[in-house]
Amino acid sequence: MSLLEVNDLHVYYGAIHAIKGISFKVEEGEIVTLIGANGAGKSTTLKTISGLLHPRSGSVSFDGKSTLSIPPHKLVSYGLAQVPEGRAVFLQMTVAENLEMGAYTRPPLEVADSMAKVYDLFPRLKEREKQIAGTLSGGEQQMLAMGRALMSRPKLMMLDEPSMGLAPILVEQIFDIIKDLHRSGTTILLVEQNAQMALSVADRAYVLETGKITLSGTGKELAASEEVKKAYLGG
């Protein structure tokens, strides 16, 4: 049984058919990436898995349970966490408060311990503990969004374009952290436009084009594929 199984999913925005019957799996311990151009339907897919959007048909099961009738705020305690597109940290709250919100569903006694772990992973956040999140740089906000998601101690962490808008050096850093998280046992579903970086860390990958999965394989296979090179890797 896979940790996450998406089957023949169809999602609409009114009359717009954004996701046209996609199926994919994430096994426990894997990093799986979903790559695709802007507008391909990557964010729509993640939002549907986390319950923010409702599909017209298809199924999603997480850890053996069908999730589609469960409201998003309850899915968190099943072990599902999402780092949203554009980070979506709480800009008017402090770094520490953002992390506390990440642990909203956890027992209060555990929060300090989780926070210490997040600060170990992101020492920059520790230094800015009392700072308002709106005053952080883009890279720091991305770290905060990731740290916040980790506070819920997820089984599966879904990341929506963590490299968006970041300088190359910061992108490297963020991907290093993703690799670290993976090594320490978190399963990861990574959505990216930055195909090169995503394929370099992924165990398996899927290519999403206008709502359909057109290619799939291991990260290495796709990085070597002519079609992917042409469309996503600049030649």
Partner: peptide
Amino acid sequence: ENKAAAQLMGINV
């Protein structure tokens, strides 16, 4: 601030 993000934290909006 952000209802969608709040839901992703497990907050019942």
